[in-house]
Each structure stands twice: as structure tokens, then as C-alpha cells.
Amino acid sequence: MSVDRATVFRIARLARIAITDAEAERLESELSGILDWVAQLDELDTANVEPMTRVEAMTMKMRKDEVTDGFCAADIVKNAPQEDDHYFVVPKIVE
């Protein structure tokens, strides 16, 4: 097993997903299975290979630094679970 139970809980915490003990047990074997399977990439020597970043060489475009959008606060908060006067409302963070 490349992933143990504690690691499953640690990753779930990093990913901000609450999981139960039963889920952790299942995920332990599923994640290990997937990671063991991708380990076949170790057969390849990639020491002198550049990572792929583009399909075709393309220069990133520049544009003028100017406001092109905005003034739509009502649209932005329209789908918020909780909003107040164009602010997103979240549980208290600072005591």
C-alpha cells in the first residue's frame, strides 16, 4: 500500500473534504491501487526531457493594462449562498 490511513486523512484535510472512517478505509486501497499503477512511469528515464507546456509554440499575448470588465457586483454575489450588501458572508474567522 503506497498510502496508509493517516495519509488519507491528511490529504483529505488538505483537500478540505470531510471523510468518514469507512470512506478512509475504501480510499486507502483505491488511492494505493491508482498510485501503484502510475508508478510504471518510473520505467522511463526523463532526466533530460523538458516538461510539455504547449501543443504548438505560441507567444503569450500582452494586452493594455486597463479595466475591461467590472461594475457588476450584483452579478458576482448573485449565486452566493449568503450575501449582505454585495459582501460574501462567511462564518466568523477572527474571535
Binding site: R13, R16, A18, A80, P81, V90, K92, I93
Partner: peptide, 17 residues
């Protein structure tokens, strides 16, 4: 926070989770 489902939690972290 910004859109979609929200399930309450005892603090902001458990709300995310």
C-alpha cells in the same frame, strides 16, 4: 462561499469540509 452549495460547520474550516 461565492457560489454553489454551502453546508454549515462549527467554523469556516468545517464549513469548507
Amino acid at each position: 462561499v461565492r457560489y454553489g452549495l454551502r453546508e454549515p460547520g462549527k467554523d469556516v474550516l468545517s464549513m469548507y469540509e
